[in-house]
Amino acid sequence: MRNIANIKPSAILVSLIQNAKLSNTVSRIALRDANKQWCAHITKPRCIRDQQTLLNVAEQLRLIIVQVSQRRCRITPTHWAALVHLEADLRNAFAQNINLEPLLDTVAANSEHSEVA
């Protein structure tokens, strides 16, 4: 069994964008949107992240999975497993409330999230 906390969705998404060779425009846009949402998610400190983003990215990946399974889109066969596993891992991380790719909580002294001693 894999340890979900150790997966790196950002690396997997970049690999899929570069190498999956999706044949359908809708699927390519969904993958690009998933990557944009994930990049915006991981740039935020852990304390202000919205875990709903995991489900949003998983839904974008589910769209691609459905299109490939219905033969509306082709994907490089070696990347099919990575796509399916990432979608399942994101849903599982959401269900278990696991923070993927944590960013250190460095909050500026003048931000609204900082505490005054």
Rank of each mutant, 00 (worst) to 15 (best):
E112T: 06
S10M: 07
R62I: 01
I4L: 02
K8T: 11
A93D: 03
S23L: 06
T53N: 03
E115T: 15
E87S: 07
D50M: 01
T53I: 11
E87G: 01
N92A: 02
R91G: 09
N35G: 00
N6E: 07
A58C: 06
V66H: 11
A81R: 14
D50Q: 12
N92Y: 07
R74T: 15
R62N: 10
P9W: 09
I65W: 06
L104S: 04
N99Q: 10
I17A: 02
D89C: 10
A11W: 03
H41S: 04
N35W: 14
S23C: 08
S69P: 00
I29R: 07
L83H: 12
A5V: 15
R72W: 06
T76P: 00
K44C: 08
L61W: 10
E115D: 12
L90G: 08
V66C: 07
L31P: 03
N6F: 05
Q51F: 06
A20G: 05
C47Q: 07
E59A: 14
L100R: 08
A30S: 12
N6I: 00
T53K: 04
K36D: 14
Q96I: 12
W38G: 10
V57Y: 10
L83A: 11
R62D: 10
Q67K: 01
R72F: 08
I64M: 12
P77M: 03
C73D: 14
E59D: 14
S114N: 11
S69Y: 06
Q60I: 00
Q18L: 04
L54F: 13
A108I: 01
L54K: 14
D33E: 13
D50A: 05
H85M: 12
A82M: 12
V57E: 00
